[in-house]
């Protein structure tokens, strides 16, 4: 039986919304923060890859490339049903390895690194039905601001942003439930459209997510599945030199597994990793995320 499931909403809300893995949404699912309440997280995301999915969907090698983002994420209830979100990678590092000759041991192409801020996302979410609804729904607008560096290094391939302005309109729907007396769970789904500028193709994103809490709702396990499709209506390599995870016309079907644990009060830790079942023009390696969070609702 679903019992006072509304108690679980804040937890579900942040768990849904708070994922810095690239394939997850961070609009918080259909649950909004109560007025004056919020959720905050400091996290580290990283991916190191030496191969990528090509446009044919198979993997090809590339110079080993690493991306590390240290990010502040926040959700805050402005008023009931209206929640503001911020995703601010205030330190982003992108590097490539040296390419060394096996014959001579000489460095043929020196590695490079870029440290900068990343692209920042500002969002606003509106709950379409009243708090406590059995089937909450929400509409979100997220603006992806090109605050990162889109082209650094001698080849212009070091990036902490894509250099374009994203406008994501997203619809979320979900439901929470109790599992026995001390456990809770939720399931959500979303669909979004990403309008992009500077010749980047628009995207259609869909995803589902489910989480289950144990240990008196202090430990959560979450699974996310996402599918992003490019409309491929933008420019191509004929006019764009971008690469790495910010490349244009990316597509993927991915998963993310996350665990989050409330250590004391609203403070907790989380860890996640993700990967792709299939992809095009995307790094082919698992990504990781660890973080410290504070949940004002817990």
């Amino acid at each position: 039986m679903v019992k006072s499931w509304i108690d679980a909403l804040p937890k579900a809300g942040w768990l849904l919304g708070f994922a810095l893995l690239s394939q997850t949404s961070f609009a918080g699912g259909p649950w909004t923060q109560p007025q004056g309440k919020g959720y905050f997280k400091l996290s580290e995301y990283w991916i190191v890859y030496d191969q990528h999915f090509t446009d044919a969907g198979v993997t090809d090698p590339n110079v080993t490339t690493g991306i590390f983002n240290t990010t502040l994420y926040a959700e805050y209830g402005i008023v009931d049903r209206w929640t503001a979100t911020l995703n601010f990678p205030f330190l982003s590092r992108n590097y490539t390895n040296n390419v060394v000759s096996a014959s001579t041991g000489e460095v043929l192409i020196p590695g490079e690194a870029l440290n900068s801020i990343g692209d920042t996302d500002l969002g606003i979410k509106y709950g379409l039905n009243k708090p406590g609804s059995k089937l909450p729904m929400a509409l979100s607008l997220v603006l992806g601001l090109p605050t990162g560096n889109p082209a650094a290094g001698t080849q212009g391939n070091l990036q902490t942003g894509d250099g374009e302005f994203n406008q994501v309109l997203q619809f979320d729907i979900g439901r929470s439930f109790d599992v026995g007396k001390k456990s809770s769970g939720y399931a959500t789904a979303y669909a979004a459209f990403n309008h992009r500028t500077n010749g980047f193709s628009e995207e259609i994103r869909v995803g589902v997510e489910s989480g289950v809490a144990v240990l008196d709702r202090d430990l959560w396990f979450i699974l996310r599945l996402a599918n992003w499709e490019s409309l491929k209506n933008g420019q191509t390599a004929e006019t764009i030199t971008s690469t790495s995870i910010f490349a244009n016309n990316q597509e993927f079907t991915s998963f993310t597994v996350e665990a989050a644990y409330y250590i004391k009060g609203g403070f907790g830790v989380s860890a996640a990793f993700g990967g792709a079942f299939r992809a095009e023009i995307v790094a082919a390696a698992p990504s990781f995320n660890v973080g410290l969070f504070y949940d004002m609702n817990h």
């Binding site: 990283w46 690493g66 590097y95 390895n97 040296n98 060394v100 096996a102």
Partner: peptide
């Protein structure tokens, strides 16, 4: 993991 390493190319 965030440091620049070496990739060996068979040249």
């Amino acid at each position: 993991a965030g440091c620049i390493g070496d990739d060996i190319v068979q040249d």
